[in-house]
């Protein structure tokens, strides 16, 4: 078992955002979480990727309980994630933005930096090489020297992917990766996700764009009002009565 969410529940004050959800993320596949607005997708996502600590329940990653680990420790174990809004340092180049992504695999400290030690030089190069490698992987080698503030929305998404990949992850969580870009660009990102899986990186995403998910995902979970209402392949989901009701009865635009 790769990643397993066991009876996850999250309450904010009196509100239950996620209620007793079990879900398994399968290795080497594209896993998706969908649901109408306010269904608790984001909360669930934050729980599994370690940004929130659940009120009750567990997250097991490769047999290890990571429920209470801080996000940086989880990242070290090989779990990476992106955010809906891409927080890049816009006055720096694309390359500069990605280099720090490999920082967690290095050891040099303040003193190394001040004294410019051998270790510092070695690790500095290692991070730069890693950044070039992942930028190549996401197809951005042509803009590595441009300022992050001057690139397109879609390129920013790819930089965010690259940053996540630079941490050497085994699984990448993508928070609405296709939000804010057009359908042609969405295709491109879908291709990139498939490429990631081919490289052996498991993908888990939440997404509003149903068409994309139905074509792309190997496994889908549907949340509604914080509870799991369906799980399965895209065909199973499309024919599931509960899912149809949830979407028709709820927010039709989702």
């Amino acid at each position: 078992m790769f990643i397993e969410a066991k009876n996850l529940t999250k309450q904010f004050g009196g509100l239950t955002a996620v209620k007793d959800v079990n879900f398994e993320i399968e290795k080497g596949k594209i896993n998706a979480i969908i649901g109408p607005n306010g269904a608790g997708k984001s909360t669930f996502f934050n729980l599994v990727s370690g940004s929130y600590i659940p009120t009750s329940g567990q997250v097991i990653y490769k047999g290890k309980d990571i429920t209470k680990l801080p996000p940086n420790k989880i990242a070290e174990l090989g779990v990476a994630r992106t955010f809906q809004t891409t927080n890049l340092f816009e006055q720096a180049t694309v390359l500069d933005n990605v280099i720090v992504g490999h920082r967690l695999r290095t050891k040099s400290n303040l003193l190394d930096a001040v004294l410019r030690t051998k270790r510092y030089k070695k690790e500095e190069k290692k991070c730069k090489d890693k950044a070039m490698e992942v930028l190549d992987f996401v197809g951005l080698t042509n803009i590595t020297d441009q300022l992050a503030g001057s690139i397109t929305q879609e390129e920013k998404k790819r930089v965010a992917f690259a940053l996540a990949l630079a941490t050497d992850p085994e699984v990448v969580f993508l928070d609405e990766p296709a939000a804010g870009i057009n359908s042609g660009e969405t295709e491109g990102l879908a291709e990139l996700m498939k490429k990631m899986v081919k490289r052996g990186i498991t993908v888990c995403l939440i997404e509003h764009k149903m068409q994309m998910i139905m074509k792309l995902a190997d496994k889908i979970m549907v949340l509604n009002y914080g509870e799991k209402i369906a799980e399965g392949s895209s065909e199973e989901i499309m024919n599931n009565q509960d899912v149809i009701e949830a979407y028709l009865g709820g927010d039709a635009s989702a």
Partner: peptide, 24 residues
């Protein structure tokens, strides 16, 4: 240096910095 980049990453977004494995 990497250390400086780490600081800047924290300034940009502490949340993001943590998810790329930085002990903030």
């Amino acid at each position: 240096s990497l250390t400086g980049r780490t600081f800047i990453a924290i300034r940009n977004s502490e949340e993001l910095a943590q998810t790329i494995g930085i002990s903030t």
